Amino acid sequence: MSYIQGYDSETLREIVDPAACRARLAEIGHQRSLPALLERVWLLKVLGQLDDSLELSEQSVRVARMAGTRKDLLRARILHASVVNERGAHAAAEYELSTCAEEAEGQEWPAITAFALQHRGRTRFDAGDYDGARSDFKRVLFLRQELQGDETQLEVAMSMVEAAERRRSHSVAS
């Protein structure tokens, strides 16, 4: 079940049903599997509980490093960097997401590359680098088209490209 109902066109943040997210968080409880940890990190992040999300994301990276695959570790690092970005540390998040994207691309894991680039694009967008964000979002769109992603994924990527273009033209005009 997807808890994402859409994306805010101004902030590019997920629009979620907070009650459903809190219910899922309660359902997961304190499960310690990596997928449960990652889901809890994301739920806490979208609910705005950034301190708890950061602490849990650091734990998920450690668990992935010790017991997961390289793909698991990349996913955990990308999610951790997205929490770091939410806390306002854009440069640190961008650096981590860049290394994740490069590693995923080097391993020829296009889905993970797209995941990292989408988050890096959002980080750049938050930092005011609309050209960089637009470039990342266009690459995400291309990768998702290559992967024959579903219509929703393609629409999200296209709307993020458009949001970066709008913001870029608005900042140039100001």
Rank of each mutant, 00 (worst) to 15 (best):
E94P: 09
A101M: 11
F115R: 04
P110F: 06
G88P: 06
F142E: 15
F137T: 08
A93I: 15
Q148T: 04
H80N: 08
Y130D: 05
A111K: 13
Q118S: 12
A91D: 14
D136A: 04
D136E: 00
R87N: 02
L141K: 05
L147D: 00
A104W: 06
E94R: 11
A81D: 04
E102A: 15
T113D: 01
Q148C: 03
A116C: 00
D136L: 03
L97V: 00
A89L: 07
E86R: 13
R120P: 04
D131H: 12
A81R: 02
A111I: 03
A93S: 09
L147V: 01
F142R: 14
D136V: 06
I78V: 13
L143T: 03
E102T: 14
E96K: 05
D129P: 06
H90P: 03
T99D: 15
F125I: 08
R139T: 15
S98K: 08
E96I: 07
Q145D: 03
F142K: 14
F125S: 07
T99E: 15
Q107H: 05
A116H: 02
Q145K: 10
A81S: 06
L79G: 08
G149Y: 10
L143V: 05
V83N: 06
Q148A: 09
G106P: 01
A104G: 12
D129M: 01
D129H: 04
T113Y: 00
A116Y: 01
T123K: 02
V83W: 04
R124V: 02
Y95L: 15
L141H: 10
A133D: 13
S82H: 13
H119D: 12
L97G: 06
E86V: 04
E86N: 15
A114R: 07
A133T: 10
A101L: 08
E108N: 05
A104P: 08
F142V: 13
A93T: 15
T113R: 01
T113H: 01
E146I: 04
R124N: 05
R122Q: 10
R122Y: 02
S98R: 12
D136S: 04
E105N: 12
A116I: 00
L79N: 14
L141M: 04
S135F: 03
R134D: 00
K138D: 15
S98E: 12
A91G: 10
A127M: 00
A133V: 11
R87F: 02
R144L: 14
L79Y: 11
A104I: 14
F137N: 07
E108V: 02
L147G: 01
Q107P: 03
A91Y: 07
H80Q: 12
I112H: 00
Q118L: 05
A93W: 13
